[in-house]
Design a protein around this nucleic acid. Structure first.
Length: 416
DNA sequence: TCTGGGGTCCTAGGACCC
DNA sequence: TCTGGGGTCCTAGGACCC
């Protein structure tokens, strides 16, 4: 029996959600109808385009480019700040609607989900009608539009939802690949990005069809395993399952931040790292894991990025232990150059049900665990600013850094 | 006043072991 | 009296996605 998969993608997600909310608040102007973007705060050096409206796209404004640049392209551009709590609410409301139709849902990101309707022909005999119903319900009940791509694997469904926008339903079944997918430019294919596209162009591969019909051995030779992957995709070959998101075990947790000013002082760098460790540690404990690898990443004011990592001999979920390793790594690599961006990442998880104590130090593990758990509980209940380390008072620095925005929503990213 | 922040996976080189 | 070969682990960096 063939699988049946929908890929549902919110059109210009953040911007649509902003527009919908503002209309509900009584605003007259619909941001979707004018050149507009949701963008970060320039003063604190977060000034990039997060999402653009379709009219803004006509000015060739790209997601990720600087707001400065975007204004050069379109002087009348309307720029609104992000409201991540709102986007989480919109995402969840949409998810609730999906759940009325199938339990097999994979939330791929805040604004994209895969829904499986395999072996449900008895329930939904007409998939076009089903897609139409879902699309119209979202528009009517929540106020924003989506694209729905339909096929029998996730890759084709995803490519389909990316065809013409907004507010459309497209199918892309295997017998439609040749007509609907092969004429597209190769960079429209999932997993063909900034680095791969020029390599393919140099092989005279311009369209997805060119790639599909190219000699896979040459691709493997030039692009290693990635060559086989994108060749498969170009031919519509993909077999992964729609996996309920909570069944996917986390591989790593990281938080990073661009600091509003260049850091040239070790004490300040340590404070920023500590605030990052606080969020990372809390998320790690929330996931019921311990980690074995801790890494620090640095981007200098010259924008050059580098990182250092360390494997621990004993797994930990202690903020303090993570912070110690982070400082060790940072101090060993930092040569005093101005720092723009700092990050803390942890990987290589194991369960936290048996907590191993090192016999080699006199660290009080039990006390440390109790403190972490108590503080976590208070912050979950009353917000991340309910308990603050004294070193952050009057420091001008956030006491729990990372995640998106400065809102008081702990663990927002883990809600997905 | 000119580059965000969250992820996953892969690769290459070096250390080390047998 | 000139260097095999296989394997694992660790680390740094790069590519891709949203």
């Amino acid at each position: 029996m063939d699988k049946l998969i929908f890929h549902i993608d919110v059109n210009s997600a953040y911007l649509s959600w902003e527009a919908t909310y503002r209309l509900q608040q009584g605003e007259k102007l619909d941001l979707r109808t004018i050149p507009s973007v949701v963008g970060g705060d320039e003063e604190s050096r977060h000034g990039i385009v997060l999402t653009k409206s379709i009219p803004a796209k006509k000015y060739n404004i790209q997601t990720g480019e600087t707001l400065y640049n975007a204004r050069v392209k379109c002087p009348d551009l309307v720029i609104v700040p992000p409201r991540y709590w709102l986007y989480m609410q919109c995402s969840s409301a949409m998810h609730e609607i999906f759940l009325e139709y199938t339990p097999k849902i994979q939330r791929f990101s805040v604004d994209e989900s895969f829904l499986s309707f395999s072996n449900m022909e008895n329930l939904y005999s007409d998939y076009m009608e089903l897609a139409e119903t879902i699309k119209e319900r979202i528009k009517k009940e929540l106020g924003f539009t989506v694209n729905i791509g339909i096929s029998n694997n996730k890759l084709l469904a995803k490519v389909a939802s990316d065809l013409k926008k907004p507010d459309r339903i497209h199918t892309l079944f295997p017998n439609e690949i040749k007509n609907k997918m092969w004429p597209l430019p190769v960079e429209d294919l999932f997993m063909v990005g900034r680095a791969t596209a020029p390599k393919l162009h140099s092989l005279n591969i311009k369209t997805i069809g060119d790639l599909a019909n190219y000699d896979v051995e040459i691709l493997k030779n030039k692009l290693k395993s990635h060559g086989q992957v994108i060749w498969n995709y170009a031919n519509g070959i993909e077999f992964s399952e729609v996996r309920k998101s909570n069944s996917i075990e986390m591989k790593g947790i990281g938080n990073s931040t661009t600091i509003a000013f260049d850091v040239e002082d070790k004490e300040i760098a340590h404070k920023v790292l500590l605030s990052l460790c606080e969020t990372v540690g809390m998320r790690l404990r929330d996931s019921q894991n311990c980690c074995t690898v801790v890494s620090v990443s640095i981007r200098g004011s010259d924008l050059i990025f580098y990182s250092r990592q360390k494997k621990l001999s004993v797994a930990t979920d202690s903020t303090r232990k993570i912070y110690e390793v982070v400082c060790y790594l940072f101090d060993n690599v930092w040569k005093g150059n101005p720092v723009r961006h700092l990050g803390v990442h942890i990987t290589d998880f194991c369960g936290n049900d048996f907590y191993q104590c090192s016999l080699l130090d006199n660290f009080n593990y039990e006390k440390d665990r109790k403190i972490n758990r108590t503080v976590d509980a208070i912050r979950l209940k009353y917000g991340s600013k309910a308990v603050v380390r004294s070193c952050f008072l009057h420091s001008g620095l956030s006491s729990m850094c990372g995640g998106v925005g400065e809102e008081d929503y702990p663990l927002m990213s883990s809600l997905l």
